[in-house]
Design a protein around this nucleic acid. Structure first.
Length: 112
DNA sequence: GAGGTGACGACCC
DNA sequence: TGGGTCGCCACCT
C-alpha cells in the first residue's frame, strides 16, 4: 500500500532494499522498473539521500550502467568498494567484475 | 514562490 | 561511430 506521500524516492528505496546479497543493479534498471527510464538521474539522487535513512539502504549495490562505482565518492574513500567486496563482489579499477552476471534486474526478478 | 542542481541514461545530430 | 543535448523529479538555496 502506498501512502499519498509515497514518492519516486520511496519507490527507489523499496527496490534497493530488495536487492539480494552479493548482487548489484544500476540506476537505469530501477528507474525503468518504476516507469521512468529517463529518470535514472533521480535514482542516483535518491541514493544521495539514502545515507540519512534508517536503516541505511544498500546504496553500494547500485552502480551506473557500465558497472562503475560512480557513487563511491559519496561513501567516502573506498568504503563502497569494501562493502561490495565483503559481499563477494570483486572490484577492479572502480568497476564491478562480472557485472553482467551479478546484475540484478528488478524488471525480471520482481516479475514487473 | 521560483529556479537551479544532481550517485544517469537515452535519444538526436 | 562518437559527441552533445535533453529529460526525469525531489530537494536546496
Amino acid at each position: 500500500m502506498k501512502p499519498a506521500t509515497y514518492t519516486f524516492f520511496e519507490n527507489v528505496y523499496d527496490v534497493v532494499r530488495l536487492i539480494p546479497y552479493g548482487r548489484v543493479t544500476n540506476y537505469g534498471a530501477i528507474a525503468g522498473y518504476l516507469g521512468s527510464a529517463r529518470g535514472s538521474r533521480m535514482v542516483g539522487y535518491a541514493m544521495n539521500a539514502a545515507h540519512s535513512l534508517v536503516p541505511p539502504i544498500a546504496a553500494h549495490r547500485v552502480v551506473n550502467r557500465t558497472g562503475l562505482l560512480t557513487g563511491k565518492h559519496h561513501f567516502g574513500g573506498n568504503r563502497m568498494q569494501e562493502l561490495l567486496e565483503s559481499e563477494g563482489i570483486k572490484i577492479k579499477n572502480d568497476q564491478v567484475v562480472n557485472f553482467e552476471k551479478l546484475f540484478w534486474d528488478p524488471m525480471k526478478e520482481l516479475s514487473i
